[in-house]
């Protein structure tokens, strides 16, 4: 049985004695996984990460990270983990190299080792040429890569990535993920991440937990979660609404649920490709013409919708706001 890297029991954080940011969370993460925490803003993702990285103390409950207790052995926990924050935390007035070396000394890594590792990492994230430039001249993607390099300088067993690709354009996002994959292989890490991008979570994570209002609603592999929705959805529009076809469709093997909205049937089925033709035949045999046909394969967004009652895609709209906030902050800094 693989070793547990994170083991949380009843983890709870209450702010100001009223707001339950994280509510009685049990969580297990195994060695070598990429584990994704998915949830809307304010769901408790950051609080969760802050507790596991020992920045916040839990109100109640316990957790072990890399075998150490997050309260009693906080220093050991911090020595075993790397954290890449949502914000760009690098010091703009320093060069990329200086930033990495600063991180190294915060981990107590001696100078010569730090230098060697820093250059290795700079090469890996392709910042070697920009290493001696001030970070204020870096683009968003370069900064993100620098953050990654800083998070890896201590060769952590477990890497926390808080929204690693937030506010990046699609190309840069893909590039960042390629780095993360490569780094994971290189250093054999376990990764704990939060993200807004469902496609990303789907493609990258071995397992996903959906969190809302501080509670973990569902944990599982993306494919499991999608399958758990009960399969595909076949939508059929018909001409003429006199005849209610619901009982007929329900009888067909593989059909799990039928909803009729005006002339549209929303049919939940297993293995849509196989069942859809049977449904079409059944409807036609009653002399009803089909005007529209579509089949929806469930995505993680549907899973998300199912458990949280809202669509994460709506939240992605706020992304431009985040970018503009960053720009403002950046300007304020100067």
């Amino acid at each position: 049985m693989p070793e547990k890297i994170v083991e949380a029991r009843g983890l709870t954080k209450i702010f100001n004695k009223r707001v339950k940011a994280v509510d009685n969370v049990d969580l297990e993460i195994e060695q070598g996984e990429i584990f994704g925490l998915l949830g809307p803003n304010g769901a408790g993702k950051s609080t969760m990460i802050n507790m596991l990285t020992t920045v916040l103390k839990p109100t109640s409950g316990t957790a072990k990270v890399c075998g150490y207790d997050i309260v009693r052995e906080a220093a050991e926990v911090r020595r075993s983990i790397g954290v890449v924050h949502q914000e760009y935390t690098a010091d703009e007035d320093l060069t990329g190299l200086e930033n990495i070396l600063l991180c190294a000394s915060l981990y107590g890594i001696p100078g010569s080792v730090a230098k060697q590792r820093a250059w290795e990492l700079l090469e890996l994230v392709e910042l070697k040429d920009a290493a001696k430039r001030k970070v204020e001249t870096y683009s968003g993607g370069m900064r993100r890569r620098l953050e990654l390099a800083c998070g890896l300088i201590s060769r952590p067993t477990l890497l926390f990535l808080d929204e690693p690709t937030l506010g990046l354009d699609v190309q840069t996002r893909v590039a960042v993920w390629n780095y993360i994959r490569r780094l994971k292989e290189e250093y054999d890490m376990t990764i704990f991440m939060t993200t807004h991008y469902l496609e990303e979570a789907d493609a990258m994570c071995d397992r996903i937990a959906i969190i809302d209002h501080g509670r973990i609603l569902k944990v599982g592999a993306p494919s499991e979660l999608k399958a758990g929705l009960g399969g595909d959805i076949v939508e059929i529009g018909v001409d003429g609404e006199k005849l209610d076809l619901t009982p007929i469709i329900t009888e067909i093997g593989g059909v799990k649920e039928v909803k009729k909205v005006d002339r549209l049937y929303r049919i939940k089925v297993e293995r849509g490709e196989e069942v859809a033709p049977a449904i079409i035949d059944a409807i036609r045999s009653r002399g009803v013409a089909i005007s529209k046909l579509s089949m929806i394969k469930p995505t993680l967004d549907e899973v998300y919708l199912e458990y949280t009652g809202r669509s994460l895609r709506e939240e992605q709209a706020s992304e431009e706001e985040i970018r503009s906030l960053r720009r403002t902050l950046h300007r304020a800094r100067r």
Partner: peptide
Amino acid sequence: MSKLDAAKIDTSPLHGLWALTNR
């Protein structure tokens, strides 16, 4: 894999003081 191969890690309570000061 060991997380901190070869490197002798400074775990004294004051480590990082000079790095942060110098920053």
